[in-house]
Design a protein around this nucleic acid. Structure first.
Length: 441
RNA sequence: GGCCCCAUCGUCUAAUGGUUAGGACGUCAGCUUUUCAAGCUGAAAACAGGAGUUCGAUUCUCCUUGGGGCUACCA
């Protein structure tokens, strides 16, 4: 009978959760779900000096945020007796020796071929003569990664080891340990590395920073920047894996249904944040206004203003932000009078005189509109009529009104802004603009 | 240096022993138009090179080149 699938994500809490770790965790988690298996979170905290509880929490928080749930949780630091027990097995077989305070595993010497049968890469052949003896216990009495990792995978009945390709070269040593301990070797799947734009391993920070495409290693940075979990799932899943159809957007549940190891790429994948931005933008636009408002809230707490106005502003900018952290800048002018150069009021195809005329005409007709009629369709109709009646071009009226209200070169349309800001504030800003225009020409 | 892995548009990738080598991001252009964004339409853009196998290779093999990883009492 086939053993029940059991996989694990085994980070060492010596630093915050990083982007590559999240993808490894995701692949493991999805594989477990797809195969009715168990997913274990195992902290490899054998490095006493560098392991910290804050990092553990950071890792757990990041996984939870992604929607990744684990069935069991372990700490290697609490399993010393287990490693000792397994060490005794090797001792009984006379496969270890002490040297310089450490405990070593003696590798078979003569040209022993070791085959790593990888689910993604096929058979990879190594030769034992290319490796040094493996340290099993350090001088301070704690087990090394190689030993604790293998022992735990045996002890926890891990069936599939899905991890980064950087571990491929370590795997023959691990296989030797499995064999020496008389244990079944699990199936291995070494997934391609996530790369910097310069193709170096991303978990090592790129030396020459500054590239706009370079992503952050620290996963928390993405949460703070306002990326959505569903976007990260899509993006990370497609870094080294691709769906069987051409649908680029899918939920975690759909991913579970589609995911197979044979669709995992062998080559490393460059992390391109523009792709992530696009995916995030897609999901952001898909949100209902209520959800969007809830998502935006934590990012705009420093902005003071009428709740109703803020909600109107959010509605107008929803399709503009790629990340939630861009929102404050996009809605700021709704909440306080914008600062801008008076020359900006003049449309490129217009003149100062025409602009002044347009602004004056707009002010006059807008002032005449009753508060109750202050709605987008009515505003549009009135301004259209004004353009025609005064013999002006649309750009003589709409452009300066828009700038008067937003102070920006790009913004939602003037009628949307007028409707959102309300009559009093709109009139005030247009008057300010008329003054600015006069003094700037 | 040694060992190992990898190689399709700039990037993520699909597909195939015979295809106009497909999609997405990005880029560019057009539409719309009062701007920008969004949206829609379109365009440019790839099989690293060389041998071999084959009627036929981007696909299979080998070599070269290039990139990456590992070579810790870090994990």
């Amino acid at each position: 009978m086939e053993k029940k699938v059991c996989v694990r994500f085994a980070p060492s809490p010596t630093g915050p959760l990083h982007i590559g770790g999240v993808r490894t965790a995701l692949f493991n988690y999805v594989y477990a779900l797809a195969n009715g298996g168990t997913f274990i979170l195992r902290f490899e905290d054998t490095d006493k000096d560098r392991s910290e509880a804050v990092f553990e929490n950071n890792i757990k928080d990041g996984l939870k945020w992604m929607g990744i749930e684990w069935d069991e949780e372990y700490h290697q630091s609490k399993r010393a007796d287990i490693y000792k027990k397994y060490l005794d097995k090797l001792k009984a077989k006379d496969l270890i020796y002490e040297h310089d305070g450490g405990t070593y595993f003696r590798l078979p010497e003569k040209n022993k071929k070791i085959i790593v049968d990888d689910l993604i890469r096929g058979k990879v052949e190594f030769n034992s003569q290319d490796f040094d003896d493996v340290v099993l216990f350090k001088k301070d009495g704690s087990p090394t990664f190689h030993f604790a990792n293998v022992v735990d995978d045996i002890d926890m009945n891990i069936t599939h080891v899905i991890r980064g390709e950087d571990h491929l070269s370590n795997t023959p040593k691990h296989i030797l340990l499995y064999e020496a301990l008389g244990a079944d070797v699990p199936k291995f799947a070494h997934i391609p590395l996530i790369l910097n734009p310069d193709k170096s391993k991303m978990s090592k920070r790129m030396v020459s920073s500054g590239s706009s495409r370079a992503g952050d290693i620290d996963f928390e940075a993405y949460i703070k920047a306002g990326y959505l979990p569903e976007a990260m799932i899509n993006f990370l899943a497609q870094l080294g894996w691709s769906p069987p159809d051409e649908n680029d957007f899918f939920t975690l549940e759909e991913l579970v249904k589609m995911f197979t190891l044979d669709r995992v790429q062998k080559a490393g994948a460059v992390f391109d944040i523009k792709n992530l931005n696009h995916i995030n933008h897609h999901y952001l636009m898909e949100k209902s206004l209520d959800d969007y408002i809830k998502l935006a809230e934590p990012y705009i707490t420093h902005l003071k203003g009428d709740k109703d106005l803020i909600e109107k502003a959010l509605k107008l900018v929803q399709d503009r932000a790629q990340t939630l952290s861009e929102i404050p800048d996009l809605i700021e002018y709704f909440l306080k009078a914008p600062k801008y150069d008076g020359k900006l009021l003049i449309f490129k195809k217009s003149s100062p005189e025409q602009t002044a005329k347009g602004l004056d005409a707009a002010l006059k007709v807008l002032e005449a509109i009753d508060e109750r009629d202050w709605v987008e369709t009515k505003l549009q109709q009135v301004l259209d009529n004004t353009v025609a009646a005064e013999g002006l071009l649309p750009g003589d009226v709409f452009w300066p009104v828009r700038v008067a209200l937003s102070g920006e070169e790009g913004s939602p349309s003037p009628t949307e802004l007028l409707a959102a800001l309300g009559k009093d504030e709109s009139i005030k800003r247009i008057k300010t603009a008329i003054g600015k225009l006069a003094s700037s020409i």
